[in-house]
């Protein structure tokens, strides 16, 4: 069966040079005007099957949020292709995207910024539905209440405004809004990062219950490894705009192959274990996306880097069992398209 979402070699660059006057430089006695390009997403490919949860992890600046916003076409992609349910949406303009948004919805990190403060909750949750409705919807009030009930909010909440809710409740409103059009795919960008731990657990449980009930897929973006392991079927690890490793979650957690994935897992604090020794720690910081390293993006911090890593950029190669890694140390596999 064709995957629900297929992303091929997606690229996203942002020109941050500013005007010609911002760019003018004198170098070696000559006037130049170099451009400054942020290479946010650099040729990322992945698929999501129906009912599957793909977790994307990586540190800040690795391009995971940009990738999500590009997939849902909040940014126009610089290159590559996005197909939803077999339909190529890469070149779709605003009007052609409207019916697509019925199939693909997004939940944002900040439950404060992503709700209109002047709208009542009943209007917020029904907005995507009404936008896409062919004609008048006579049962709009009942539908709104039913949606709120699905996310654990009551009738008494329907006429309130967003500021009257706590962070966890606001995230529930955001989830209800996404559910209103019964989408096939929900893109969740750090949906629990702003919440307290006890509320995080409530929202994660709710998101999983709804998935089981409606059978949609998630593209779940987070920096939190314990959350990603809990919720995902498959995991993609991103670094500096590249997908460095993908695979079933147990393969990633039990047999991480990329040195970056290994370092990330070693650095994450685990309850009741001692602080990992400095020898296991990853050194330095993420290079600038304005000026990508040659070859492997991770080579500047990689303890195992050798000559080839600077000369040649590794591609994702399959290691069997759906596990693929982009590292010259695992060179034997077959390149993944």
């Amino acid at each position: 069966m064709a995957p629900l979402l297929a992303v091929r070699d997606l690229r996203q660059r942002f020109d941050v040079s500013g005007s010609i006057f911002d760019r003018l430089r004198i170098r070696n006695g000559r006037i130049t005007a170099p451009r400054r390009i942020v290479h946010a997403v650099n040729g990322v490919s992945f698929e999501i099957a129906r009912g599957e949860v793909l977790g994307l992890v990586g540190e800040s600046g690795c391009g995971k949020s940009t990738l999500a916003k590009t997939v849902i076409k909040l940014h126009e992609p610089t290159g590559g292709a996005i197909a939803l349910d077999g339909e190529d949406i890469t070149q779709h303009d605003f009007h052609r995207m409207r019916p697509i948004r019925k199939k693909m919805q997004m939940i944002f990190q900040d439950p404060y910024a992503s709700l209109n403060p002047r709208q009542r909750v009943r209007d917020i949750v029904m907005e995507p539905y009404l936008e896409n409705a062919a004609g008048p919807v006579p049962d709009v009030a009942e539908r709104a209440l039913a949606l709120l009930a699905k996310v654990g909010l009551g009738r008494e909440h329907a006429d309130r405004y967003p500021h009257q809710f706590s962070g966890g409740q606001r995230q529930r409103i955001g989830i209800a809004r996404a559910l209103s059009v019964e989408p096939d795919l929900i893109i969740a960008d750090e949906p629990v990062s702003a919440l307290d731990v006890s509320i995080q657990a409530q929202i994660l449980n709710l998101m999983m219950d709804l998935k089981d009930e409606f059978g949609f897929s998630y593209l779940f973006i987070t920096h939190d490894l314990s959350v990603v392991r809990h919720i995902s079927d498959r995991i993609g690890v991103m670094y500096l705009g590249f997908m460095v490793e993908t695979g079933p979650k147990d393969a990633i957690f039990e047999n991480p192959l990329h040195p970056y994935t290994q370092a990330l897992l070693a650095a994450a604090p685990v309850l009741g274990t001692p602080l990992p020794p400095a020898a296991d720690a990853i050194k330095g910081e993420v290079p600038s996306a304005l000026n990508l390293p040659t070859g492997c993006p991770f080579r500047t911090r990689c303890p195992l880097a050798f000559d080839r890593c600077a000369a040649e950029r590794p591609v994702l190669k399959s290691q069997g069992g759906g596990h693929a890694v982009a590292c010259h140390l695992h060179d034997a596999g077959v390149p993944v398209a």
Partner: peptide, 14 residues
């Protein structure tokens, strides 16, 4: 409430 990243669980206790 904390998901354990060293072992998978079906559902979090909340």
């Amino acid at each position: 409430s904390i998901p354990h990243h060293d072992k998978a669980q079906a559902r979090l206790r909340q």
